[in-house]
């Protein structure tokens, strides 16, 4: 279990002070895949670097199980670090070493014998599907392959925790998916706790169980992915979950009123809402805006419907009765 308690980090430089993290409290259970999402500059990298003390928090504590990391000696800290592996946005491979040597690196650091290192490294390259690339140098590998090598390297010391700082931000969508599959597999098979930092909603959606939304150095929301995404409460969360919804206020339709329909995780297979409303009640809805997504077979998101003013009462009545959604009339000022 990882616990961040009242964690704050302030950078002081010639240009002034930056409060990168403010009073963060997060608990991550063993075996979780925990996402930390936020806009650029929100403090995500700073937060993840605090977890292995690459960055010393200004205030607060990081507990790994029951060890307070700030109390450890340098030597003890180095030992704990070999249990908290890290995967980076730009892979950070040793460019003058082969794939095999790169995977060996953490083991060498830990003082393992060369023969044991190589055996373990081969095994891990097989796990990430690169057994035929062991003597290739990073420059000879694609981005996705390089990230696989980096993941194999991270697993070399049998860590309990895997910290991933934007592991897919440098990759194309297909490669992103294959790397996310790999991370999910690792979490399942090896039961390693995974913490993923990202600014991409889709990453959280596809692999995370829990999520914290970071805005301007503060955790503004956290919880199970489904819950947080269903009803993002804060402005920052909404901007991340439904980036398009900031356009809402710009929409106004002549002679129509706007209704916001929020999907809270109803079955995706239930009857089609708009069609039913039209065919059964003769209410024609103008879809002014829609952003929904399906997570584990359930629908989340919101939709903005333009409806003739005289039909609005009927529409509200119908929608309120439907399962898995909440409805509100949108006043002129949004």
């Amino acid at each position: 279990m990882i616990r961040l308690v009242d964690l704050s980090k302030t950078f002081t430089s010639a240009q002034g002070t930056v409060e990168a993290l403010k009073n963060i409290n997060i608990t991550i259970e063993d075996g979780d895949v925990f996402g930390i999402i936020g806009m650029s500059g929100a403090g995500k990298s700073t937060l993840i670097r605090c977890i292995n003390m690459l960055e010393r928090p200004t205030e607060g504590t990081v507990f790994i199980d029951d060890t307070d990391l700030s109390l450890l000696s340098k030597r003890e800290l180095r030992r704990v670090r070999s249990q908290i592996a890290m995967v980076f946005q730009n892979f950070n491979l040793l460019m003058q070493k082969t794939a095999l040597q790169n995977v060996c690196f953490p083991l060498e650091i830990a003082g393992a014998a060369k023969k044991d290192c190589e055996e373990k490294a081969r095994q891990l390259l097989r796990l990430v599907g690169l057994e035929d690339k062991e003597s290739a140098y990073p420059a000879q590998l694609s981005g996705g392959q390089q990230q696989r090598v980096a993941i194999a390297r991270a697993l070399a010391t049998d860590p309990k925790v895997l910290l991933c700082d934007e592991p897919t931000s440098a990759l194309d969508p297909n490669t992103t998916n294959s790397i996310l599959d790999l991370i999910r597999d690792i979490n399942n098979k090896l039961n390693i706790t995974v913490i993923v930092i990202t600014h991409q909603m889709s990453v959280v959606e596809s692999i995370c169980k829990n999520v914290a939304i970071l805005d301007n150095g503060e955790v503004v929301e956290q919880g199970a992915v489904g819950e947080v995404f269903a009803q993002p409460k804060t402005r920052a969360a909404r901007a991340l979950v439904y980036p398009e919804s900031s356009q809402e206020s710009a929409i106004s339709l002549e002679g129509q009123k706007l209704i916001r329909v929020v999907f809270n995780g109803g079955e995706a297979t239930s009857e089609p809402l708009i069609a039913t409303m039209a065919s059964r009640h003769g209410i024609l809805a103008n879809i002014a805006y829609a952003s929904t997504r399906t997570i584990n077979g359930r629908v989340y998101g919101s939709m903005l419907l333009g409806i003739e003013e005289d039909k609005i009462e009927k529409a509200l009545a119908f929608l309120t009765e439907s399962d898995g959604i909440t409805v509100q009339e949108v006043s002129d000022n949004g």
Partner: peptide, 21 residues
């Protein structure tokens, strides 16, 4: 690349190992 040095630190390398490896 300073990021590579950070990688080594995150793997638990001490200063001597960072210099030599």
């Amino acid at each position: 690349d300073p990021n590579v040095i950070e990688m080594a630190q995150s793997a638990g390398a001490d200063s001597w190992q960072i210099i030599t490896k």
